[in-house]
Structure formats: C-alpha cells, structure tokens
Simulated scan of single mutants.
Amino acid sequence: MEYTPRYTQPFTLSEAKLLDLETITTEIARLQNSLQRLGETQDMLRAHAASVQPGEEVDPEITKAIEENETVIGSQSERISMLKMALLDKGIVAGSHYDLAPPVVAAPAAASPTEDGGVDL
C-alpha cells in the first residue's frame, strides 16, 4: 500500500512498518499525550484571543501560535494514523488501550502432577 502524507513526516509508512511493536506503541502514546497538551494549549490561546476587548487587536504572536499549533496537531495526528497503519500491517487491529487491541495470549497448558505430588513443566 502506498501512502502520501499531507504533512512532512520524520519517516515513511514503509519505514514505520519496519519498526518493532514496542517502538510503534510507545510513539503512539507519546504523540497522543502531546496532542492532548496541544489541545489544552489551543483552548487557552483561543480563550485569551476571545477575551480581547472590542477595538483591541489580538496579539499577533497569539494568532501565530494558534496557527502553528494547528499545523503540529495535523502532523502528529497524521503520524499516529501512519503508525496505526503499520500496526495493521503487522496484524494488530486498533482497540481502546492506546487505541490498540490487547494482544491475544493463549492460555498456558495445564501442568500435570507427578507421582510425588510435584508438577512436570
């Protein structure tokens, strides 16, 4: 599958597919945390911009920060999508925890007791 990102990314989808599972899930969690913080910052910046009195101008630095954050939010959201595609390529379907399905673990085979009451492993 070929994927062309809208934003400049530090890796391609093909490179993401080469990453190990732990690296992918850790990066998704890091990016999700960053997006949460950026969202909170955006809310504060927008509230500040909205509080400007009629006739006053919004500080251009505030406006610039809001615009730059929007770009970063878009880029990081796209990166998460790419990492999820890499997980899907590995056979892992999105779920709830870090937006990942928990791994399916087979139940261990029952140990059989020995004549002396111990357990053979």
Results as ranks from 00 to 15, higher is better:
Asp99Gln: 12
Pro108Ile: 07
Asp59Ser: 11
Ala86Arg: 04
Leu83Asn: 01
Ile92Val: 15
Val72Pro: 00
Lys90Tyr: 01
Ala94Asn: 09
Ile73His: 08
Val72Arg: 07
Ser81Ala: 12
Val52Asp: 08
Glu57Phe: 05
Gly55Arg: 07
Gln76Ala: 08
Met85Trp: 03
Val105Ala: 13
Pro102Trp: 04
Ala65Lys: 11
Lys90Leu: 11
Gly91Gln: 00
Ser81Asp: 14
Ser77Lys: 13
Thr63Gly: 05
Leu83Met: 06
Pro102Thr: 06
Met85Cys: 01
Val93Asp: 12
Glu61Pro: 02
Ala94Lys: 08
Val104Phe: 12
Ser77Phe: 03
Ser96Pro: 04
Leu88His: 14
Val93Arg: 12
Val52Pro: 03
Ser96Ile: 10
Gly55Ser: 09
Asp59Val: 04
Met85Phe: 07
Ser75Ala: 15
Ile62Glu: 01
Glu70His: 11
Val104Cys: 01
Pro108Gln: 10
Tyr98Ile: 10
Pro103Gln: 10
Asp89His: 09
Pro108Tyr: 13
Ala107Ser: 12
Ser51Met: 07
Pro108Val: 06
Val52Trp: 07
Lys64Gln: 12
Ala49Thr: 05
Val72Met: 08
Asn69Gly: 07
Lys64Ser: 15
Ala107Tyr: 05
Leu88Gly: 11
Ile62Gly: 03
Ala86Cys: 07
His97Asn: 11
Val72Lys: 12
Lys64Ile: 02
Asp89Thr: 06
Lys64Glu: 13
Gln53Ser: 14
Glu70Phe: 03
Leu87Gly: 00
Gly74Pro: 04
Val58Asp: 07
Ile66Val: 14
Leu88Phe: 07
Ile92Leu: 13
Gln53Thr: 05
Thr71Glu: 08
Asp99Glu: 15
Val58Gln: 03
Ala50Val: 00
Lys64Tyr: 10
Arg79Met: 14
Ile92Glu: 04
Pro60Leu: 07
Glu70Gln: 14
Gly55Cys: 11
Gln76Thr: 01
Met82Ala: 08
Glu68Val: 10
Glu61Gln: 15
Lys90Asn: 05
Ser77Pro: 04
Val58Lys: 04
Ile66Glu: 02
Ala111Ser: 15
Gln53Leu: 15
Thr63His: 06
Ala49Leu: 05
Ala65Val: 00
Pro54Glu: 14
Val93Leu: 14
Gly91Asn: 02
